[in-house]
């Protein structure tokens, strides 16, 4: 849904045109979710509890509402309406979207999710922190690495040894 806009010809004065199409994507997602809810719960059986409302009533309600809202949203976007991107101190609202940054953060996080059980918390979390800090623009790598290791070891000790929360030990099983 996040393909960059190619229709550079359409320019309105107040809006940045490149947003139009991606926002339409979100609006269509809302619409699509409405359909998904209705279709997805169509097969739910309501054999038990014959009284009152079965398990399909509420999804039907939510799904229909979502379709209605989705249609309005799509129309709104097509007619030129657009939401204001959230303002934040750390965000340069005028900057063009940096898909490389988003992609990098995504890859690092998903790798972390996939490798956590194998590597264990200490290693995986340190790599997560280190990778994210670099992806988000940290310049001093050694410092980032040091902070990463300290943070991951400290959290492991505090929550696993201190509180008995279960986190995977992974590679360091038996060492820590």
């Amino acid at each position: 849904m996040s393909t960059p806009d190619e229709r550079d010809g359409v320019v309105t004065r107040d809006a940045v045109p490149a947003w139009r199409r991606p926002e339409l994507g979100l609006a269509l997602t809302v619409l699509g979710l409405g359909v998904f809810v209705i279709v997805g719960t169509a097969g739910v059986t309501a054999a038990a509890s014959t009284l009152g409302l079965g398990p399909r009533f509420f999804p039907l309600l939510v799904g229909s509402a979502m379709i209605l809202i989705g249609v309005c949203y799509v129309l709104d976007v097509l007619r030129g309406g657009h939401g204001d991107p959230e303002e934040s101190e750390d965000v340069d609202a005028a900057a063009p979207a940096d898909w490389r940054g988003v992609g990098l953060v995504s890859v690092i996080f998903l790798l972390f999710a996939g490798l956590l059980d194998l590597l264990g918390w200490v290693v995986a979390a340190a790599l997560l922190f280190f990778g994210l800090a670099l992806a988000l623009g940290a310049r001093e790598r050694l410092r980032a690495a040091a902070v990463a290791v300290v943070l991951s070891v400290a959290t492991y000790l505090a929550f696993v040894k201190g509180l008995g929360v279960t986190l995977p030990a992974g590679l360091l099983d038996g060492v820590i």
Binding site: V123, L127, F130, R141, G170, L171, L172, D173, G174, V175
Partner: peptide, 20 residues
């Protein structure tokens, strides 16, 4: 760099877990 770091940590930890 990241890969090197990972390899070092993995090597250290492998030694550790062997003794246990």
């Amino acid at each position: 760099r990241l890969a090197v770091l990972a390899a070092v940590i993995a090597a250290v930890s492998a030694c550790g877990s062997g003794s246990d």
